[in-house]
Design a protein around this nucleic acid. Structure first.
Lengths: 190, 190
DNA sequence: GTTCGTTCTTAAACCAGCTTAATTTATTCG
DNA sequence: CGAATAAATTAAGCTGGTTTAAGAACGAAC
């Protein structure tokens, strides 16, 4: 599976050829190998990333020195630490590829310029942010209403392809479970 | 404290007088008494609400028939169930005023029309959604990194005015704690 | 196909936070 | 104000999920 940024934008806001050219002049395409680091903690999150192909994770190091994953991004998703990106402040997060990936990135300043140059994209990003917000509301609801056991089963039965793409311990981290407990759940269910 | 929508928009996108008039023709101002219901579960979340004065809560009924609060909105915040609002599907949530409140609401269709009529507002809402998303990422990080005890102290020391405005059991619900446990924490800390 | 690092499993002890249920204190509103 | 209702507290017992520690299985790279 692969999804170009142009194609994705076109689903919401059709762009003219010249607008597409302006867009590509403000963005960078990059191919990153497996486990490549895009952002390290302490740095400012300078870029907003779009995943054309592959998979990203965002995580921080918790007080037990363990990696705590807070978000994944698959094909068609945008990812950054928005506070750091907007306010130009150091981030607590790491962003890393899980697989070899093809990305489009936009720097903070380029993002502002781009939106001035192609105001139609304000609409595209408004819609994207709105959808992200809806997804985030739903995730929060799940966190409140499900036990950790339910949350795990919900996730594994709703996203089986994802479970196969990503190591089990990363899924465990994202769901806020210990790998040991996930093992127990898998045993229980088989 | 009171904050008009015009003023709030003006912080991000200055509007002309005629644009302000178009805006007000697509929105509704309403004063709602304490504990007034704006959305009930099973209904479509037809409106997006801006709080000019007062306080809203969004909650659902969990499997133990208890109210589970997922969001508050104070002056200057927008609130709705975005999935229901965007896709026109029934919501699981209730939205209710905690205090007597002054609100501005925009219906789904009016929202689309408004954005067509005043494209500048795409930018305003893009920024609002982006800020919401940043706030949501931060909240998620807190959930992952803090124990419930830490989460409670963090919240009560960072938002003391809020703790006084909202009943303790609502704060407990929002933080995912039982009222009994909050009582214990308060006793421990005094 | 062997090696070395990474990932997953097993099991027992442990504890943060919940449940239950009874009591006290605040609020609301006639 | 005073009655009724809603909210907050207390304390004991319990449990879902973690911690710890050790070993087993996997998979990438030579």
């Amino acid at each position: 599976m692969q999804l170009s940024l142009d194609e994705h934008i076109n689903r919401f806001v059709p762009l003219s050829e010249s607008e597409k050219q302006i867009l590509s002049s403000f963005t960078k395409s990059q191919v990153v190998k497996r486990r490549g680091i895009l952002l390290s903690n302490g740095e400012v999150s300078r870029s907003l990333y779009f995943v054309e192909k592959g998979c990203l994770r965002m995580y921080f190091i918790n007080d037990k020195s363990a990696e705590q994953i807070t978000q994944f991004a698959l094909e068609g998703w945008w990812l950054t630490d928005f506070f750091s990106f907007m306010d130009n402040t150091p981030s607590d997060y790491f962003i890393q590829t899980i697989e070899a990936s093809k990305l489009v990135s936009i720097d903070r300043l380029a993002f502002d310029e781009l939106l001035k140059a192609v105001p139609k994209l304000e609409r595209y990003f408004r819609i994207i942010m709105q959808k992200n917000l809806a997804a985030s509301q739903l995730r929060t609801k799940y966190l409140y209403e499900m036990s950790k056991e339910e949350f795990y089963y919900h996730f594994s039965s709703n996203f089986p392809e994802f479970m196969q793409r990503v190591p089990q311990y990363m899924v465990a981290s994202y769901l806020g479970l210990t790998p040991e407990y996930v093992s127990e759940l898998r045993k229980r269910n088989s």
